[in-house]
C-alpha cells in the first residue's frame, strides 16, 4: 500500500520536475537566443576577436573522419585536410601564428550545438550554407563549392540519381543536408543515418546499403581510400561550403572573409585546393 502511494507521489513529482525543467529550458532558450542578439548589438565589433586574442588560441571544430577535408591519421595522431589548412590560415590572420589553433572533433550532428555552446569559435567542417542554418548561425563567404553525389561499390547497377528508386537503401550522416536533399529528389526512399561519415562508409562496405550519399568532394576522398568504390553520376545539388560562427559575431565573419579574399588573391587558396583535391579550382 505504501508502495502505491509513493508511486503516485513519484509520478506527481516527476511531472512537476518536468514542468520546472521545461520552464527553465524555455526561459533559458529564450534568454540564450535573445542574449546572443543583445550581445551582438551591444558588444558588436572585436569582442569575439578580442576573446580569441586574449586566449591566444583559435578553437576550430573540424571533422576527424572525412578524408581530404579533416581526417585523423592514427599513425601520426594529426588531423589533416583542406579544412585544416584553411583554419590555419585564419589563425595566422587573427593571431599571427598558424599553429595557434586547437582542433576539436565535430560531426554533422554536433557542430551547431558545440558552436552555440561556445566551445569552438568556428566550424570549418564541410558545412553547406542553407537558409535554415542561417537562422542558427552566421556564415562566411563560400570557401568551397561542392555538389551532392552518390558513392557505390564498383559494378553496382546504380550509375546516377536516376537509378535511385524507392527500394534503394541510401546511407548518410545525421544532420547533413544530403539526407534532406535525397528525400526530396526521391520521395519515399529509405535513408539510414549514422553518427558520422566513417560509420556510414563502414556500413556501405558491410553491405548495409546500396549507395552512400553526400557531397562529391567527401565521396572522392572515400573512393581514394578504397578503390573498390566509385562516385557515380553528375552532382545533383549545389553545396556551397561556408565557415560558421556564432550568430552575431560579425567581427569574426569579417576576419574570416578577409582571410579567404587574401588567400584567393595571393594564390594560396589555389595551392591548398590543388594539394587536397588534386586539381585547380574552377574559375
Amino acid at each position: 500500500m505504501k508502495m502505491s502511494k509513493s508511486f503516485k507521489m513519484l509520478s506527481v513529482l516527476m511531472i512537476a520536475a518536468m514542468l520546472v525543467i521545461a520552464g527553465c529550458g524555455n526561459n533559458n532558450a529564450k534568454n540564450n537566443a535573445g542574449g546572443n542578439d543583445a550581445a551582438a548589438g551591444a558588444a558588436t565589433d572585436s569582442e569575439a576577436i578580442a576573446k580569441i586574442k586574449e586566449r591566444g588560441k583559435l578553437l576550430v571544430g573540424v571533422k576527424y573522419d572525412t578524408r581530404l577535408f579533416g581526417l585523423k591519421d592514427p599513425a601520426s595522431g594529426n588531423v589533416e585536410g583542406f579544412d585544416i589548412d584553411v583554419s590555419k590560415a585564419i589563425a595566422k590572420k587573427i593571431l599571427g601564428d598558424e599553429n595557434a589553433i586547437e582542433l576539436k572533433e565535430v560531426t554533422s550532428k554536433t557542430r551547431i550545438p558545440m558552436l552555440n555552446n561556445g566551445e569552438i569559435d568556428m566550424v570549418v567542417a564541410t558545412m553547406t550554407i542553407t537558409e535554415e542554418r542561417k537562422k542558427e548561425v552566421d556564415f562566411s563567404d563560400v570557401y568551397f563549392q561542392a555538389g551532392q553525389s552518390l558513392l557505390v561499390k564498383k559494378g553496382s547497377p546504380i550509375t546516377g540519381l536516376d537509378d535511385v528508386t524507392k527500394d534503394t537503401k541510401i546511407l548518410g550522416s545525421k544532420g547533413a543536408t544530403s539526407i534532406k536533399n535525397i528525400k526530396e529528389k526521391v520521395p519515399g526512399v529509405t535513408v539510414l543515418e549514422f553518427d558520422n561519415y566513417q560509420d556510414a562508409f563502414s556500413a556501405l562496405k558491410a553491405g548495409q546499403g546500396d549507395a552512400l550519399t553526400t557531397d562529391d568532394a567527401i565521396l572522392y576522398g572515400m573512393a581514394s581510400q578504397d578503390p573498390g568504390y566509385e562516385v557515380v553520376g553528375e552532382p545533383f545539388t549545389d553545396e556551397p561550403y561556408g565557415i560558421a560562427v556564432q550568430k552575431g559575431n560579425t567581427d569574426v565573419v569579417k576576419a574570416v572573409n578577409d582571410t579567404l579574399a587574401e588567400l584567393k588573391t595571393n594564390g594560396e587558396y589555389d595551392a591548398i585546393y590543388t594539394k587536397w583535391i588534386g586539381k585547380a579550382p574552377a574559375k
Binding site: K109, I112, P113, E136, K174, E193
Partner: peptide, 10 residues
C-alpha cells in the same frame, strides 16, 4: 537525432 537536427532544440 533526426528530430533534434531539424529543430535545433536538443
Amino acid at each position: 537525432d533526426s528530430i533534434s537536427t531539424e529543430t535545433y532544440r536538443t
